[in-house]
Design a protein around this nucleic acid. Sequence first.
DNA 1: GCGTTGACTATTG
DNA 2: TCAATAGCCAACG
Length: 111
Amino acid sequence: VSEAASLEPGFFERVYRAVSRIPPGRVSSYGEVSRMVNGRASGARTVGWALGALPELRVDEVPWWRVLRADGSLGLGRDPEAAAEQRSRLEAEGLGFDAAGRIDIERFGWP
DNA sequence: GCGTTGACTATTG
DNA sequence: TCAATAGCCAACG
């Protein structure tokens, strides 16, 4: 492997990797993913930004819909269409939403 | 090197 | 519960 740098994937790759480790029926928050990637929950914004750059081609590899906000509400607040898709995918995995449209991350959250 | 941007989080009122 | 504010980190121009 001549590409020694590939041993240390960039922030993007690490985020995709961490998100892809989330099993079906479970959800995680940006802060949690940030902690997996950087060891800190402070980089949550960067995680969201990294997923925002997630090309559609990687959608099948990275279950971005399993990443929610810390309070269990869906992200993509500025993208209603994508949020609806996220909700559909989560419902398809058996996750329940409350009246406020939020998931009980304490119950479905992936530690 | 600096300022801006962003799918965030925690705190305060 | 909702709204607004401050703090943090990484990439881009």
